[in-house]
Simulated assay, not measured.
Amino acid sequence: MTKPAAPKRHLPTSPFKEPVTPAPKHFAVGDQVTHDMYGLGRVTGIEDGIAALVDFSSAEIRILSPYAKMTKL
């Protein structure tokens, strides 16, 4: 088994900008959301920092953090 690769550090002499880490998204029960694949839904449950349970009317789906394809409306 191999160790995970360490993140690359930004060199101060680099001509490129330092990569920006986006702020983590936070959702609460009752929030109306949209998902790129499932469409419009409502958050019905939260597992802090792990996942959100979202009711998309056709199915209730567990969306894992960092919620890349989901946005709050």
Rank of each mutant, 00 (worst) to 15 (best):
D55E: 10
D36W: 02
G45I: 03
V29W: 05
A28M: 08
K3T: 15
L40H: 09
K72D: 05
P7A: 13
G45N: 04
V29T: 09
K25W: 00
D31V: 02
H35P: 01
L11F: 13
P66S: 03
T34N: 12
H35K: 01
V33N: 03
P4Q: 09
A52C: 10
P4T: 11
K69V: 08
T13Q: 13
A51C: 09
I61F: 04
F56T: 11
S14Y: 09
L73G: 07
T2R: 11
L11E: 14
P15K: 14
A68L: 13
K69I: 05
L11A: 14
T2H: 12
G39K: 07
K3Q: 14
A52M: 12
K8A: 15
A28T: 11
L73Q: 12
D48V: 10
P12F: 12
K72H: 07
H10D: 08
T71M: 07
P24S: 11
G41D: 09
P15E: 10
T71H: 04
H10M: 03
K69E: 13
S14D: 15
E18V: 08
H10F: 09
M70D: 00
A23E: 15
H26E: 12
H26M: 08
T21C: 00
V43Q: 06
G49Q: 01
S58T: 14
V29F: 03
I61N: 05
V43W: 02
E18A: 14
K17M: 12
A59H: 09
M37P: 00
K72P: 05
K8F: 10
F27E: 02
I63R: 00
T21L: 05
V20S: 11
G30R: 05
I50T: 13
T44Y: 02
I46D: 02
P66V: 02
L53K: 10
A23Y: 02
H26C: 05
D36P: 00
T21D: 00
I50Y: 08
I63C: 04
T13K: 13
S65V: 01
S65R: 03
G41E: 06
F27K: 00
P19F: 05
T21F: 02
L64Q: 11
S65N: 10
T21A: 01
P66M: 08
P4A: 13
M70L: 09
P22I: 02
